[in-house]
Write a protein that binds this DNA or RNA. Structure first.
Lengths: 340, 340
DNA sequence: CTGAAAGCGCTTACAG
DNA sequence: CTGAAAGCGCTTACAG
């Protein structure tokens, strides 16, 4: 057999290797697993055959045989093109990889059926746990049954969602309070508020209701002052422009993320408004976008890194048989820059 | 056995189910696979036991038994916190998921050893293929041996990298020509060029050399006019400021991505430069950042979506036994907005 | 329509 | 130090 052929990608298994080396599969397995009880000579021979054929044992079969898991963690996320989720997945991935886990990733958007399908697939793949990021949506009957059901197979970790049920662990950011307090703070100088958002996620709703509650507490009426737009700066700018005159000169805007805040800032500058003198703008996520604009955006930092770290730490404990709290909350904080 | 216990998460296997239903595992398997040759009565009985125990068969074991693959595709990417890579992974994931594949994700940064480890892990997990995004780095000997080796096990698809070898398929964007032509275009009005970049990836180098070549063709000396900075707007702004006076009023800046362009724009505005009258700025990636700034950034669109689509299409063909080109190139184009 | 048996690619007691 | 055998959780010819 010439070199050319040896390197051919014929899928080798342990039987082929054993045959070629003139030993039993048990022996091949032993050298694969560095068992001390193999003679140097045999070991060398087997190793050379393995090398020649570029043989790599199947982790799948090893796990089956050893009754061990594949150290797989499923991540189901809402939308990876949103920097927030991308950052979350990135943080989780690196943290989990350091602990010897591997990631199966699925992005599902708002479609709960797709989400359900993804979770079922992950369970089928024997994942040790699944992590949902900002992707808790109700099913057609308005409940979380599909999550409760999934949790019978492995722990479910939810980031920025809250489900109280057996074997489900929620980690979320108190966006409600953050926005509510932000309204109070802005109320010191402003009266004409506007809230812009672009998604009906759990945390999106916390922000929205936080805004409404804050306004009411300040004796203001939130009606007509919460607007949904598409997830682009342009859409935010257009919505802002549409409503600016109607609502008698808006002077305080909070947005559900920094991209929308940038859009509002653009529209405000286009109108020759002075920021923050004429209008204050506060974004959300404290992302790199805040530093891409002139002036830089003030933004609410939702402690994503902390959230992800806590989630992975919690998950690690669970996988080690320890128990953890069902619900963990992180407090966000306002980061002041130039737009407020 | 009460309901409480039934719902307990005892890992069931096909033997337990068969026992409980009073049939053989073959029969259970048949109802699992919807075989027509099971009596309605038996089927019902088995199904009820399966339901009671919330049993889900192991796809791992099924694949082993059927000698089928798990439809797993490995994705190794450089840095998911960079919007460019996040978008790439998102596009690949949704496209692959539609075709019935699942994704194992690994983010490795610049560390080639980590990259190698990730690729080996993926092969061990029996992936059908691995896709590398912007993450081709040379090993300590300055070569790609670890990739060539990996390609003996499954096809390697490289996005924004170029490796010519058996079973390796490269899809890249002609960033060299894009930047080179951009320099020529800017040369119509400008003479004082600057190029800012933040990573030594393959495509990063294409952009860099495209800039140098373009300048030379225009009779300009690129020396000292290419600067590396950190991947933040602030770092870009600082580097720009440092060099602005030294280099006698820079009036044309090209950056390796939009974040850096935003940083330069900030610094320029801070100096009260008029954009684009006093200085033109062109970013790269045509990301959402371009629309977050005032004025909006002109940017080179590297056709990421097209690249990802072509890669997945190519991969699908490969997996169906068809053959495809080893190297595929996509042409980027300049998108003019307000900064040039 | 149903079950016993062999097999997927591995590992590890158990003998020798 | 080495091999034959049983087992991981499945599927599917082969008999009946």
């Amino acid at each position: 057999m010439d070199k050319q052929q040896k390197n051919k990608s014929v899928k080798m298994n342990i039987y082929n290797i054993a045959n070629e080396a003139g030993v039993s599969i048990a022996t091949v397995s032993r050298v694969l697993n560095n068992s001390p009880s193999v003679s140097a000579k045999t070991k060398e021979k087997v190793l050379s055959v393995i090398g020649n054929y570029n043989y790599v044992p199947s982790a799948i079969a090893q796990n089956l045989s050893l009754r061990t898991s594949g150290n797989l963690i499923g991540i189901v996320c809402y939308n990876l093109q949103d920097l927030y989720y991308a950052t979350a997945v990135s943080l989780l991935e690196s943290s989990l990889r350091k602990r010897g886990h591997h990631i199966i990733l699925s992005c599902t958007g708002e479609d709960y059926l797709q989400k359900q399908k993804s979770i079922e697939m992950l369970i089928t793949k024997q994942v040790d746990a699944v992590i949902l990021i900002g992707s808790v949506f109700l099913d057609e009957y308005g409940n979380n049954a599909y999550l409760v059901n999934a949790a019978k197979h492995c722990p479910l970790v939810i980031i920025n969602g809250k489900v109280r049920s057996e074997n489900i662990y929620s980690f979320y950011c108190d966006d409600f309070t953050a926005v509510r307090e932000c309204v109070h703070k802005m109320y010191q100088k402003h009266r004409n508020f506007l809230f812009l958002y672009d998604a009906d996620t759990y945390s999106g709703n916390l922000k929205l209701t936080g805004f409404q509650e804050g306004m009411k507490e300040c004796g203001l009426d939130p009606t007509g002052r919460t607007l949904r737009c598409d997830p682009t700066p342009e859409s935010a700018a257009v919505r802002f422009d549409e409503i600016y005159d109607t609502l008698k000169k808006i002077d305080a805007v909070i947005t559900a993320n920094d991209v929308l805040a940038a859009g509002v800032l653009n529209a405000a500058l286009r109108r020759n408004l002075k920021v923050p003198e004429d209008i204050s703008i506060v974004g959300y996520n404290n992302s790199i976008i805040t530093q891409c604009t002139t002036p830089h955006l003030s933004s609410i930092d939702n402690g994503l890194e902390q959230l992800c770290n806590m989630a992975v730490e919690g998950l690690t404990k669970l996988l080690h048989g320890e128990s953890i709290e069902g619900i963990t909350m992180v407090s966000p904080h306002l980061v002041l820059r130039d737009t407020m």
